[in-house]
Nucleic acid binder design. Structure first.
Lengths: 247, 247
DNA sequence: CGATAAGTTGATAACGTTCAAGGCCAGTGG
DNA sequence: CCACTGGCCTTGAACGTTATCAACTTATCG
């Protein structure tokens, strides 16, 4: 799918050309959870006309750290990572986003971190300028965006405690508890991790070897089960929580 | 100064009792930089009537992690730290705020981190409920709050890279560069640190000994000068920037 | 000027990284 | 259906950075 942004698509077409527009929002999977949830139908339709639906493949980078902030988007489907890196190439994942989350930097000139799809994903993409303009005129949208940003800031600050003060074991335990809360497992309780070992390391500020060692250790102790490369079952969640030192 | 919050103070007094109210905002040091900057005089006066000016002493904690979110505030004067800690008492400073910054958790039930004055400080304090109500009706205020929160989130995520991926030396160098940008030094170029060594350690996710060693090492190399306990001069800022690995 | 908290310095040990090799799984082609 | 391939993950050994523990020094304030 073409990722380039075509401004021409966003001008309002002459009314005659869209007598009964099929509104993408009516069938949207996240319409009640995303930031557009509180808009009335008319406003939602207007916002929808500003943006377009886009698919991205796993591994594809949607925005680059330091680039001009030219697009923002709602995540409709899939998981993506937000990351920054040092000049030397060391990477830190600063966030993982799920369906209904919002990505990009509205009201700002620069994208402060890269956004990369971890799985195949679908986005509802807006040119930043148009989005900013729309949001400025719609308090409900801005309020939802504010709520979401405040929540994200809280979660990010909690993660700083992990990065600065927790041991490798505590970090991995916290990660497993956290992922367990977001992604319910299948009927066997097996959670499909959206992250590779390297990516888990990049979330926790560790090396891949340390993550691997901690996880096999926890398996040996009967705290978790590892099934295949991407599966985990939290066997003793209470013990993990104790390990995680969650305040 | 009494920190307890007295709701009675916030009810509007009978009009007869305030014929020409002396508006605290007209002499406010941060009125053009805080979130209330874009309000018209009438709205600003209305907001002012909701809140009150409060002084706090260095060391005093204004809000506690996990408490009900009952107040929010603008910082008028002074420096404060935001911090979280593990059950075991390990602390991580998740933010440092300066005059015109906003503190507290609007639109949320819990305070996610403690707020403690590092220096004597003055705040413009609002009961959270009243503030939320006012903000909901005033798009300009909410927009400013959103801008500020987005900026803070960007800064916080940049700090995650430091916590997760930088060495002790890089951390200290980054800290010095960062503080140098916020606090201009005196005519000798000496910056008065608002943080003790322990607090610097708590910002960087290090121990006090490591911070001390890195700083005396940098002094030995002629990168910085240490004057007294709270003074630093950045002698070779370019070298520090190179050390900091700022992307 | 003396008391005391804050900071520095040193020795030692632990934790996590680094480097290196080997194993395992998923996808591909025979 | 099996062998082959390549990437991902695991395991091991050695090293290095930072934490820990303890003693000492210095700045600051009454």
């Amino acid at each position: 799918m073409d990722m380039r942004f075509d401004l021409a698509q966003n001008g309002a077409a002459p009314a005659a050309l869209r007598p009964r527009p099929i509104d993408a929002c009516t069938i949207c999977l996240v319409r009640d959870a995303a930031i557009c949830a509180d808009l009335c139908d008319a406003d939602r339709a207007a916002l929808s006309r500003i943006g377009r639906r886009v698919s991205v493949k796993a591994g594809q980078t949607v925005m680059w750290e330091g680039d001009d902030s030219s697009i923002v988007a709602n995540v409709i489907e899939g998981t993506l990572k937000l990351s920054t890196s040092t000049g030397g190439g060391r990477e830190q994942i600063v966030g993982v986003v799920y369906p209904s989350d919002f990505i990009g930097r509205p009201f700002g000139a620069r994208t402060p971190h890269s956004v990369t799809a971890l799985t195949d994903a679908r986005l509802c993409l807006f040119p930043r300028g148009s989005f900013d303009g729309f949001a400025t005129g719609h308090g409900a949208l801005q309020h939802r965006l504010l709520q979401r940003t405040l929540d994200e800031l809280d979660r990010t600050r909690a993660w700083m405690l992990l990065l600065g003060r927790k041991s490798a074991r505590e970090k991995v335990a916290t990660f497993l508890i956290d992922i367990g809360r977001r992604l319910r497992g299948d009927r066997d309780g097996v959670i499909a991790l959206p992250l590779s070992r390297q990516q888990i390391a990049d979330v926790l500020g560790l090396t891949i070897e340390t993550v691997s060692r901690q996880m096999t250790d926890m398996k040996r102790q009967g705290l978790i089960d590892l099934v295949g490369r991407r599966g985990v079952r939290l066997v003793d969640e209470a013990a993990l929580e104790r390990l995680a030192e969650i305040s």
